[in-house]
Structures are given as C-alpha cells and as structure tokens.
Design a protein around this nucleic acid. Structure first.
Length: 155
DNA sequence: GCCAACGTTGGC
DNA sequence: GCCAACGTTGGC
C-alpha cells in the first residue's frame, strides 16, 4: 500500500512538538481521541505513515513539523481510567471503543506554517483543516497536499 | 471573550 | 426516529 499521510492536532500548551522531541525515544502514544471519525482514521494508520503535527488553540495555530507512526492502533487505556480526563465508561478492555497509535518525532519545519498562510496556498483549498468549522483532530492529507506543505515548511 | 460548527444526549 | 438542548473545539 502506498504510504498514507495524516494530520494530528494538539494544543501546544498540553503537548507540543517540542514535548514530543524531548520524550524518551522521541515517541509518545497518541491518547485521548474521543471522536468516531477520528478513531476510524487512527485505525487505518500503518507503520511509517507520515504525520503533520498541528498546533491548535495556539498563537498562531499552524503546522509545526513532521512525525511518523511507529505503533499501529491499540486500545486507548486512558478510557478505562476513571481518574483520567478522557475516561469513558462505555469503553472496556474486553470491548474497547477508543484506540491510539504510537507517534515518533521526525523533524520540526524550518518554517512554522501558520494556518492563515495555508489558506492562501493554491492546491490546499480542499484540505479538511481549512474547512470552516472543521474540528476533526485526526485528518487524512492527500499526496498533493503533503508535498505542498513540505515544500513550504522546509523552504 | 465570542461564537460558528459541530457531536452527543435524552425526552418524546 | 426526530430534534432541542447542551457541551466542546478552536479560530478569531
């Protein structure tokens, strides 16, 4: 299968691309996804898929760099923990509702790409990220979109 | 702080 | 199954 590309949103005040870089093995599990459409995308991810690391609720919001999938979908255990912010009693170890992947830092872009600038780019108009009211925290990115964004980020 | 655009919940 | 109320996301 051809390599797939994705975009993952994170609020840098809770977990930034710098936090990912400073993790042991520069790797984390991407927990807390509690939306079915996003969950379905999580389950489609395969090893070595490439990911845009997006900073949401940031000033400015935008794409900060690249990561890759180093662990395919497995049950999100934070859903089982009643003390966890993302606890969901409907999800059980026997029949988990929510899944997560392992993600490893690849690099930060030379240029942080603010959302505002992406809106102006020819070829990106169809991106889910740019759709008015888009809230999906896990999104597919097409080959064409991926290439345009990498070119901008590394320029 | 505001609010548009959702997704979810629960009464009926 | 419908839909109003509510809660959340996230840009601005």
């Amino acid at each position: 299968m051809a390599k797939q590309h994705w975009l993952l949103k994170s609020e840098p005040t809770s977990f930034s691309i710098d936090d990912l870089q400073s993790r042991p093995a520069q790797t984390t599990h991407w927990d807390g996804v509690r939306n079915y459409q996003a969950r379905n995308y999580i389950r489609q991810m395969v090893l070595k898929d490439q990911v845009l690391f997006y900073h949401s609720n940031a000033q400015p919001p935008g794409v900060a760099g690249i990561a890759e999938i180093v662990g395919e979908a497995y049950p999100d255990h934070t859903a089982f923990d009643s003390d966890d912010k993302h606890f969901d009693p409907k999800s059980t170890p026997i029949k988990p509702t929510w899944y997560m992947v392992d993600v490893r830092f690849v690099r930060k872009f030379k240029n942080f790409l603010p959302l505002e600038n992406l809106r102006d780019q020819v070829g990106l108009q169809g991106m889910e990220l740019l759709r008015t009211g888009s809230r999906l925290s896990v999104q597919p990115v097409s080959d064409v979109q991926w290439k345009i964004i990498l070119k901008l980020g590394d320029k």
